[in-house]
């Protein structure tokens, strides 16, 4: 019998503890990504000075000094770390602008895509799962199984390409790649999320084209999650429907809809929260590929270009960002889980 204060007190302590260890985890992530990127057997100087200048020792030396590549690896590491402590991720070799700024510019695009994908994945997945459970072994169940199988077993880049081919190239039902129609300026940069910016700056004509362009990539990215969640919800719904409390709910005279959508679903959703936490990692990986296919100017396509040109600061910056997003999303998942499942006491 815990009083509400001690409940929120333990919740607060739990969050605080997790936030305290977060820098240590990030330190590990940075170190590992730093080491791995330096061991790639290729020379970033090619992308810095260009292949032609690679034989010009003067240019090469100047570039090395300019970008700090003349130092030992350990020296590079310590100076990177001390800059990092000041919130400085260095200058990108490729864009020649600060990595922090690059990431901040591109983050909204990725979030816009990932959140929409997550929305499709969870809402669609839960709806499909409940539908499949209530029509167990009927047509709707089989169709949703097939749909889930396609989404969760085929790679996201393939899904993206096929969707683009069918809906854009073949039948012209959807616009092509890109966040905006060709030759259209982005709405005023207020939040970086085009959709919000268009609404906030009163540019309502842009709202539908923006949504339309978001649909295919977000669906391609969210399809796998939708498949996983729909299967999970189906099986946990079927489990929960066997539970004694479902019979109690029926014995109260409640309709099947309430029994399903309130009593059983509430319990069946608990495992979904865990999957959502883990799914953030795969959404991020998926975003890299999806952004490339749909010319989406976000962190994913930035990461791809950075890797292609061995842009060390950019690569490490993306890794740190990914790490932060991953750790925070896990924390949110745990807190949500503790909140949703009254049996969990945060220790």
């Amino acid at each position: 019998m815990s009083a509400p204060t001690s409940y929120w007190g333990s919740m607060f302590r739990f969050i605080a503890r997790r936030l305290i260890i977060m820098p240590f985890l990030l330190f590990g992530i940075v170190t590992i990504s730093f080491v791995i990127s330096r061991f790639i057997p290729s020379d970033p100087l090619i992308s810095i000075v260009g292949e032609r200048q690679l034989n010009n020792p003067v240019v090469v030396l100047a570039a090395k000094q300019r970008w700090g590549l003349d130092k030992s690896m350990f020296g590079q590491y310590t100076s990177y770390m001390s800059n990092l402590a000041k919130g400085d991720l260095g200058i990108s070799f490729r864009t020649k602008t600060p990595v922090v700024g690059d990431l901040i510019d591109r983050l909204p695009a990725t979030f816009e895509l990932a959140f929409t994908a997550m929305f499709f994945g969870t809402v669609g997945g839960v709806l499909l799962g409940v539908l499949a459970a209530s029509r167990r072994n009927k047509i709707a169940d089989h169709v949703s199984r097939l749909f889930a199988l396609v989404g969760s077993s085929l790679p996201v880049f393939w899904l993206g390409l096929v969707l683009l081919y069918i809906f854009y190239a073949r039948f012209g039902l959807m616009p092509g790649p890109g966040r905006l129609p060709p030759r259209v300026d982005a709405p005023n940069d207020i939040t970086g999320f085009y959709l919000f910016d268009a609404i906030l700056s009163g540019d309502f004509g842009l709202v539908w084209p923006i949504i339309q362009r978001l649909l295919l990539p977000a669906f391609a990215l969210g399809w796998g999650l939708m498949g996983i969640i729909s299967r999970l919800v189906r099986s946990s719904m079927l489990d929960e429907l066997q539970a004694d409390y479902v019979r109690t709910a029926r014995a109260k005279g409640l309709t099947e809809r309430v029994v399903f959508c309130k009593h059983a679903l509430r319990n069946a959703l608990l495992p979904v929260l865990t999957v959502l936490g883990f799914s953030i990692a795969s959404l991020l990986t998926g975003a890299v590929l999806t952004e490339t296919i749909f010319s989406w100017n976000g962190v994913g396509s930035y990461a791809v270009s950075a890797t292609r040109s061995l842009d060390y600061p950019a690569i490490n910056g993306v890794c740190i960002l990914g790490g932060i997003v991953f750790l925070i999303s896990n924390l949110i998942t745990d807190v949500l889980y503790a909140y949703a499942d009254p049996k969990i006491r945060l220790a």
């Binding site: 539970a243 004694d244 409390y245 019979r247 109690t248 709910a249 029926r250 014995a251 109260k252 005279g253 409640l254 309709t255 009593h263 509430r266 319990n267 949703a340 499942d341 009254p342 049996k343």
Partner: peptide
């Protein structure tokens, strides 16, 4: 039947441990 269940006939189930919804 739904009008009768819980309205005209109340039922107490065998296992009180599992007969209440854990989430509410």
């Amino acid at each position: 039947m739904r009008g009768i269940r819980g309205g005209k006939i109340g039922m107490i189930f065998q296992d009180p441990m599992t007969s209440l919804n854990p989430s509410f």
